[in-house]
């Protein structure tokens, strides 16, 4: 699984990076690296079986609490 994730990200970097470097897009490169890094860390965590919070559960909880405090 981790191997697959690594392979996938290697593919993406191989596709995108040469274009960015060739065109000398500095800012694009920075943003791309940050986003890809975030995606990479999250995917590795998921592949390792780490339990991440579910977005909708978080949202529901937050809004319920918000509603209660307003009441």
């Amino acid at each position: 699984m981790i191997f697959l994730v690594l392979l996938g990200f290697a593919c993406i970097v191989a596709i995108e990076l040469p274009v960015l470097i060739k065109a000398q897009y500095r800012r694009e490169l920075v943003v791309f690296t940050i986003l890809t890094g975030a995606a990479f860390i999250l995917s590795i965590l998921l592949a390792l079986g780490v339990k991440l919070p579910y977005i909708e559960l978080v949202l529901i909880e937050t809004f319920t609490k918000l509603g209660l405090t307003i009441k």
Binding site: Y25, E28, T36, A39, L57
Partner: peptide, 25 residues
Amino acid sequence: CKLLTYRPLVFPLGILMLIAAHQSH
């Protein structure tokens, strides 16, 4: 981020979207 093109961002954002979809519910 005042970039010149959005194209290099599509792939990482797509993967982030995929992860978000996985962690949606």
